[in-house]
Design a protein around this nucleic acid. Structure first.
Lengths: 289, 289
DNA sequence: AAAAAACCTAGCGCTAGTCACAGGTTTTGG
DNA sequence: CCAAAACCTGTGACTAGCGCTAGGTTTTTT
């Protein structure tokens, strides 16, 4: 067990601030944000705002679904960005611009990263190296983010939904958040995640109720290749089966997932994690027969 | 601000055990699992095992990708389930059976839930109600899970990958984990998540490097409907555009995502969260012109 | 041993992918 | 302010690929 502990100590990057972070974590638990109905959204957002302000004079921005242009709102339909988090209403209300969600480097990075990170114009700082983030363009960082630096919490949810909570300094000068990130990333992640989780739960209607989606081995196998863009002729060659067989399996999968065509079948299977991160399954699959 | 605090207190479900959980969280931070290379997997797994044992005499089971039949292993290729977590090698090694991952109710539930929950033969207990989990069949619970009860931590990752860490009592009699869940769910979630995060980072090769995937508004709009199974004729009617225009947009999206056909385009767009949780976008979209 | 799944195959009609073309609208940048 | 560059809209036709039904074989479950 000693060996184990040692290796962890070597990994730790915050041992220099033990007492502070402990207190934060305690605070976080007592103020745990719990959203059980739409009425809880407002107080939960206010608590998140207060937490961010008290911890590091930070301002909150949140998006429950980066694929949606819908701004987050409370039970009365008031936008959280302006009414709670205190973003100036003048500056042409960035959170209403649908283009931003599609082009912001922050949104972009959230697609590829699962852990908290912080960003300024000089680069993206993750806990562990992520080469996928290296090629993100930060040249218009300040214009797109409305801050000189920001701590970002990506929140990956079921059904392929991605949310994000970000924290940027209220006084716009600060471009270094390394200290705040080291000290508060964990608590901000915890609270931000629960906030987005709860908000999604009470707002998004999930109309799709799959009856029996126990896909068989072959069905998933065929769907994997289909998701990679292979035609059924190609899949048939890969799996050493007939073309009709491949179609049959995919068709069966479509019935189980209540999908009407191949695209929707792939979509639903992806949402449910059946095809997750297919890095081209092991070679030699054509030797199964 | 008083109102805020009050509403949270009403939501809190663990105020009866304040001191205990605080200690746990402190412990968790000092023993933070950090996997920066494949060699760290083994000690990280051992630490997770020790944490589970010390907290509640629990045994760990983990899966980094419920879509893959690959068992988690350390740098030398040893299966973590048998070599570290201590699952008996005799009982025909459940973690090697690919069918289980497709049919286990635990795996199933992870597709629909983002927060920790615990299960026994009587039902699934989530923090907040989740109607999607109600219809899951638990009649063969003990056979499929190899335990009378279990705490489950779903881990939703980028690219549509879903992982899971579960904790079940070492002595197989216990079927009630409500106390352990209330006290340790947060720390188990934190540690389990970081473990799966780190493992995925050092093991899974992500060969796909999207060059320019700034999809335009129309492209995403068309892809949404395509993912819902609409044909391009239907999409054209919905958006009040010509059929060829719809094809044009989807084709452009395919080029940006480096996809070769519609299915792969939908797949990649889903992985990147462009279509996340499409609950049929707001009506009236045909009035944009 | 019976039953139920899962698996494999064939052929027909329809959809989607692609090409070449022409022009309007919004954003971006000098 | 103008120009360039994206982005958006539209036409028409051909071919490869997909959706679907029907029926037989193998494997798993009861």
């Amino acid at each position: 067990m000693e060996r184990t502990v040692d290796s962890f100590v070597a990994c730790m990057d915050r041992t220099d601030q033990p007492s502070k972070s402990q207190v934060d974590f305690r605070t976080s638990r007592q103020g745990t944000i719990c959203i059980s109905s739409i009425e809880d959204v407002r107080p939960a957002a206010e608590a998140l705002r207060d937490l961010a302000r008290d911890l590091g004079n930070l301002r909150v921005a949140a998006c429950a679904n980066i694929a949606s242009k819908m701004a987050m709102a409370d039970a009365d339909g008031n936008a959280l960005a302006s009414d709670v988090f205190g973003w100036p209403g003048s500056k042409d209300q960035w959170w209403k611009k649908p283009l931003l969600a599609l082009s912001s480097p922050l949104t972009f990075a959230c697609r590829y990263e699962s852990e908290p990170f912080w960003v300024n114009a000089d680069g993206i700082r993750t806990r562990a190296p992520n080469p996928l983030l290296d090629k993100i363009d930060l040249s218009h960082f300040h214009d797109e983010v409305n801050a000189a630096s920001v701590i970002v919490i990506p929140v990956h949810l079921p059904f392929g939904q991605i949310g994000v909570v970000s924290f940027s300094p209220i006084d716009e000068g600060r471009s270094d958040l390394s200290r705040e990130f080291d000290a508060y990333a964990d608590v901000l992640e915890y609270q931000g995640r629960r906030f987005i989780n709860g908000y999604s739960r009470v707002t998004s209607q999930r109309p799709w109720i799959p009856r029996n989606c126990r896909l068989s081995k072959r069905e998933v196998e065929c769907l994997r290749w289909a998701a990679l863009g292979k035609t059924d002729v190609e899949i048939a060659m890969i799996l050493n089966r007939s073309c009709a067989t491949v179609r049959f399996h995919i068709h069966n999968a479509a019935i189980k997932l209540e999908a009407v065509n191949r695209s929707q079948t792939v979509f639903k299977a992806t949402q449910l994690g059946y095809l997750g991160s297919v890095a081209v399954a092991a070679p030699g699959t054509h030797a199964t027969a």
